[in-house]
């Protein structure tokens, strides 16, 4: 048991932390202090009550299961860890994630997975505006719908949406790949629908498989969106888009 935590207990190899009596600082401090050979590999967090930066900056293959809603930046900059949120997530869940898994069982607020470099973010409910903004290699699977400006300036990675997408999807997109099953309210500047070839179907299938829903949805129902790359160079003909 970690001594810096005021209220934690270890039962059956599971560390229990109650955020009604321990602080986020104590929790994160204890998680950051874990050694690579730790046997405290499963953490159950009670009473998260929308607190911010829960389980931010982890860098070990541990599991953190959070029982309830979290505030901003839960799992921020995650590396390796598996973070499960049994509730809704505030702004910037899994922002700048490097690797590992963040799974939101409820809805997520704005900028979910923002700037993520790697790892997998699964959102069972809906994600709000700017989901995957400036994404840099993360894979995001949203089972519901995403709000406006999702994948804005997306540089790399995939955004898969089983529901609908809001206005200006993929605005100023670089090389991120977007798959949407439902309707798209509008495409942003430089974002176009692209042909769904076999390699893209295989890529989508691999993401659905990672999210544990391969076979539950029909891949042929998805459309692919990507960059038309016309804004890659400053050009007089593109002035209206600048």
């Amino acid at each position: 048991m970690n001594l810096s935590l005021r209220s934690s207990s270890v039962l059956d190899g599971t560390t229990h932390v109650d955020l009604a009596t321990s602080t986020v600082r104590e929790l994160n401090g204890a998680l950051h202090a874990l050694k690579p050979d730790t046997n405290e590999t499963l953490w159950k967090i009670a009473n998260p009550r929308g607190l911010h930066a829960i389980a931010a900056g982890l860098d070990l293959p541990v599991s953190v299961e959070i029982d309830g809603p979290v505030g901003y930046y839960c799992g921020g900059m995650n590396k390796q860890a598996r973070i499960i949120i049994e509730g809704t997530a505030g702004v910037g869940v899994a922002e700048n994630m490097m690797s590992g898994l963040v799974h939101v069982k409820g809805d997520a607020s704005q900028a979910a997975g923002a700037t993520g470099n790697g790892g997998l973010l699964i959102i069972d409910g809906n994600a709000s505006a700017r989901c995957g903004i400036s994404m840099k290699g993360i894979d995001i699977v949203v089972k519901g719908s995403v709000g406006h400006l999702s994948a804005f300036m997306g540089q790399a990675g995939t955004l898969t949406v089983l529901g609908d997408a809001g206005e200006a999807l993929g605005d100023s997109l670089y090389e991120a790949k977007l798959f949407v099953r439902g309707t798209v309210a509008g495409l942003g500047a430089d974002c176009v629908e692209k042909e769904m070839r076999d390699e893209h179907k295989a890529l989508l299938a691999s993401k659905l498989e990672a999210a544990g829903i391969l076979g539950e949805v029909d891949i042929s129902e998805f459309r692919r969106y990507g960059s038309s790359r016309t804004l890659y160079h400053f050009h007089v003909d593109n002035v209206s888009s600048y």
């Binding site: 401090g29 900056g57 702004v91």
Partner: peptide, 22 residues
């Protein structure tokens, strides 16, 4: 990309402090 205005900035700074243990 993930904060707007001073109230958000406060939470963003808190996150950066958490990641780097203050």
């Amino acid at each position: 990309p993930d904060w707007t205005g001073p109230d958000d900035l406060e939470i963003k700074i808190e996150e950066l402090r958490e990641i780097t243990d203050w």
